[in-house]
Amino acid sequence: MRKVRFGVVGTNFITDWVIAGARQDARFELKAVCSRSEEKGKEFARKHGIPYVYTSLEEMAGRSDIDAVYIASPNFMHASQSILCMESGKPVLCEKPLASNVAEAKAMIETSRRCGVTLMEAMKPTLTPHFNRVREHLQYAGRVRRYFASFCQYSSRYDKLKEGVVLNAFKPEYSNGATMDLGVYTIYPLVVLFGRPSTIQACGEVLPTGADGQAAVHLIYEGMNATVLYSKISDSYLPAEIQGEKGTLLLDKIQKISEVVFIPHGVATSGKGASPLRQKLDVTANKDEYYYEIAEFINLIQDGKPESEINSHLHSLITLEITDEIRRQLGVVFPADKNVRKSVSFSAGAGLESGW
């Protein structure tokens, strides 16, 4: 068993969660952490038993005893840091969203191909056994007519915003907001299952900072509609659904799928409980939810593959095409968008022209 020695960028709670899941893979070895603050970096290193601490990404990426880098920095830094690491010969697992926009993602993918190193977006739900069950059983739903997903989670940082304190979660300069933080969880699985939509219609609430607080998005496919809801200023407890002519797949939470049920067409439920014809698609998932993205990434490195078949470069690009268009319709602009030529365009009643 060959160890893959990792350096991580970022010391937030997501990095904590990823490390916990990653350590369930015996091939994972944590070698270094890079933080803008040396003090935070040392504290994080003590907590996780990390040998080396850096405040310079160039230095960490240049180490010969680091095989790969996991990046969990603010969204606006994903592209530049990933490109730096890949140009140093290091495969990169980059947190979602992969980049601020399509143009940045294309530059990252071009670097991956030019340098011959793996690049993968760390979108965890699509790599779990429960999502694999959805993919396996999609055929039993028949012709799919509707996809629905919701991820609405009231942010404690919104309370601070109402008090006049603007934290990073609501700063456009960090490429943040509801679409990038939560919306991508509803969109990425849709793209993996059904590809690129022909039309997008979005509406939402833009906060005084210029970041979006929530949105409702309607996406049109041939013979199928998709609707996604997401919010950082309200809560929702709705499950996700994939509705077909022969049945419906019910997913408890699109961002963390722990239960999948198939309900054949015509099967009703009564007050006495669910019909026995409702099929619970049980999965034995005895690993942490973050384990699966690390295992997929390590497999790619050891197999010499540049990208995942599920969290592929194309799926990441299409997702960003969609988020770019949502932001355009809402009027949300990031500093990262400046001087970037728009390569795709959606409009009501019009198709997509892809520059990829």
Rank of each mutant, 00 (worst) to 15 (best):
S73L: 06
P74Q: 12
N75F: 08
F76Y: 14
M77T: 06
M77F: 04
M77N: 03
H78G: 08
S80T: 14
S80A: 14
S80P: 04
S80I: 11
Q81A: 01
L84N: 13
L84H: 13
S88G: 01
G89V: 09
K90N: 04
P91K: 09
P91M: 09
V92R: 07
L93A: 04
C94T: 14
E95V: 00
K96C: 00
K96A: 00
A99I: 01
S100D: 04
V102E: 10
E104W: 01
E104G: 01
A105W: 05
K106P: 00
K106D: 04
A107S: 11
A107R: 15
I109A: 03
I109H: 08
T111L: 00
S112V: 01
S112G: 04
C115A: 13
G116S: 09
G116A: 07
V117W: 10
V117G: 09
T118K: 08
L119Q: 08
L119C: 07
L119S: 07
M120S: 05
M120L: 06
M120H: 06
A122V: 07
M123T: 15
L127T: 05
P129A: 05
P129I: 10
H130R: 08
R133L: 07
R135W: 06
E136V: 02
H137L: 00
Q139P: 00
Q139I: 05
A141D: 02
A141L: 02
G142D: 12
R143W: 15
R146C: 14
Y147R: 10
F148E: 12
F148A: 04
S150R: 14
S150G: 07
S150L: 10
S150Q: 14
F151C: 02
C152W: 10
S155C: 06
S155G: 02
S156F: 08
S156V: 07
R157A: 08
R157H: 13
Y158M: 03
Y158K: 04
D159Q: 13
K160I: 00
L161I: 00
K162A: 04
G164C: 03
G164V: 02
V166R: 09
L167R: 12
A169P: 03
A169E: 15
F170W: 13
K171R: 15
P172V: 07
P172E: 04
Y174V: 01
Y174D: 01
G177P: 03
G177F: 08
A178Q: 05
T179K: 00
M180C: 03
M180A: 10
D181Q: 11
G183M: 03
G183P: 02
T186H: 06
T186P: 02
I187T: 10
L190W: 12
V192S: 03
L193Q: 13
F194L: 04
F194T: 06
F194K: 09
R196P: 08
R196A: 15
P197N: 09
P197H: 11
P197R: 12
P197M: 07
T199H: 11
I200S: 06
I200V: 15
Q201G: 00
A202D: 05
G204R: 12
G204I: 10
E205F: 01
L207G: 06
P208G: 03
